[in-house]
Amino acid sequence: MSVAITLTVNGAPVSLEVDPRLLLSQLLRDELGLTGTHVGCDTSQCGACTVHLDGLSVKSCAVLAVQADGADVLTIEGITGPDGALHPMQAAFREHHGLQCGFCTPGMVMGAIELARTARDLEEATIREGLEGNLCRCTGYQNIVKAVRAGAQAMREG
């Protein structure tokens, strides 16, 4: 059995037939080739697979592809400009060395963009609380917090 779904991914319309068990992360990676969304823990704990679904960050390994029917999905590939220009949050992660192995980075950036849009302030405690759902094993988070604050400020100013 398969189910027909139609959604928007990074601004482009997508229609396809999917297995009802297919996860959104699998749809993005395996069906659409958007491999910037990484799968770290398979159980919605680590946040490496974070994408935006109708503007809210979700862990795409815990969303069924059929649940995204009709939705607007934004992945890490969708926030880089067509000319390769980095989004302010991406630029901040690079500039502040908010990454080491880079595997958690796309999910971290997607989570941080939503945080920047919704956070009441950019205090360190607010950022740390907002990023609790994204794990990093390399950095110790110091530079991630710096990057998120700088990226959020750039977004607000930009």
Binding site: R29, T37, H38, I76, T80, G84, H97, L99, G102, P106
Partner: peptide
């Protein structure tokens, strides 16, 4: 000097084994 792969890491274009075509 920043990490050589940082521009790729943040763009989601740094390839890990599972990202290879």
């Amino acid at each position: 000097i920043r990490h050589d792969s940082a521009p790729l890491h943040v763009a989601g274009t740094a390839r890990y084994v599972d990202d290879m075509p």
